[in-house]
Amino acid sequence: MNFISPKSKLGQNVKIGYFAIIEDDVTIGDNCIIGNNVTIYKGSIIGCNTRIDDNTVIGKQPMKAVTSATSDDKLQPPCRLGDNMIIGTSVVIYAGCIIGQSSLIADLSTIRENVAIGEKTIIGRGVAIENYCNIGNYCKLETNVYITAYSDIEDYVFIAPGVVTSNDNYAGRDKERFKHFKGVTVRKGGRIGAQATILPGKVIAEDSLVGAGSVITKDTEPEKITVGNPAKPYKRVPDSQLLKNQ
């Protein structure tokens, strides 16, 4: 009912569900649980005590469209997953990914090639992380976050549900765009509220906060709150002024 290549190496006490496919040269550490209908492609490395739930795909090689601006034809190296991870149902993790120990990748998420994710980071349900991205340690990306290609997310970053990032100021309409792709940068401790939109190349500063629904058209300032469309630094109205206006 399963296909497990004799060229692969399984550790002790590995449990595998029904209809799993484990290709050549895969390494799976001790005490792992592999769900039903999981596919693990050639050369993938899975750490110890890691759980992979049903219908998940590990180590998929990327596809390249004729018009693709952010993919290449190179065969990606095998992906590497750390110890003590939890990977949900119907997750797709491409070849060329490195994910640190004790991280969680929730159901329906997609992580493209050339992505590095640190330790103890949570990738929420339905999150999409495009290629050539770095995600730090102790981050939390909540449901349906979209991280565009060529983005850098540093440690201890919080990104609320539905946040959208972008990397193409030309909106796909000019050949000049190929020279200027740039994702977003979120510095250590940056926080982004629900449904915010971050335009290409913008920097969310260290320990700054982007308010829910904001559109970031300029870099934010460290330890400041930025809100609105277009977003601007938040200035609290003095209590005396509020009383005067009543």
Results as ranks from 00 to 15, higher is better:
residue 120 K to R: 15
residue 124 G to S: 12
residue 164 V to A: 13
residue 161 P to C: 11
residue 164 V to S: 14
residue 118 G to N: 03
residue 147 I to N: 05
residue 165 T to A: 13
residue 143 T to V: 15
residue 129 I to A: 05
residue 132 Y to P: 00
residue 119 E to V: 13
residue 135 I to H: 03
residue 163 V to F: 10
residue 144 N to Y: 12
residue 138 Y to N: 11
residue 146 Y to L: 15
residue 129 I to W: 04
residue 121 T to E: 06
residue 168 D to G: 10
residue 146 Y to I: 11
residue 168 D to C: 09
residue 131 N to Q: 14
residue 173 R to S: 14
residue 140 K to Y: 13
residue 160 A to R: 09
residue 134 N to H: 11
residue 166 S to C: 14
residue 123 I to M: 05
residue 121 T to R: 02
residue 110 T to V: 13
residue 140 K to L: 12
residue 127 V to H: 05
residue 128 A to L: 12
residue 122 I to M: 14
residue 152 D to W: 01
residue 158 F to G: 02
residue 172 G to N: 07
residue 170 Y to A: 08
residue 157 V to D: 00
residue 130 E to W: 03
residue 118 G to K: 01
residue 153 I to A: 06
residue 141 L to D: 01
residue 170 Y to L: 12
residue 146 Y to G: 10
residue 127 V to K: 02
residue 148 T to I: 09
residue 171 A to T: 09
residue 140 K to P: 02
residue 169 N to M: 13
residue 146 Y to W: 14
residue 120 K to I: 00
residue 130 E to R: 05
residue 144 N to V: 06
residue 143 T to P: 06
residue 156 Y to N: 11
residue 148 T to H: 06
residue 155 D to Y: 04
residue 151 S to D: 11
residue 147 I to D: 03
residue 140 K to V: 09
residue 117 I to R: 01
residue 139 C to I: 01
residue 160 A to G: 08
residue 164 V to H: 14
residue 146 Y to F: 15
residue 135 I to N: 05
residue 123 I to E: 02
residue 147 I to V: 15
residue 115 V to F: 04
residue 167 N to F: 10
residue 112 R to W: 09
residue 153 I to E: 02
residue 144 N to M: 13
residue 165 T to C: 10
residue 127 V to P: 03
residue 155 D to C: 11
residue 158 F to P: 00
residue 144 N to W: 06
residue 133 C to K: 03
residue 131 N to W: 03
residue 120 K to Y: 02
residue 159 I to A: 02
residue 127 V to Y: 04
residue 142 E to K: 02
residue 145 V to R: 02
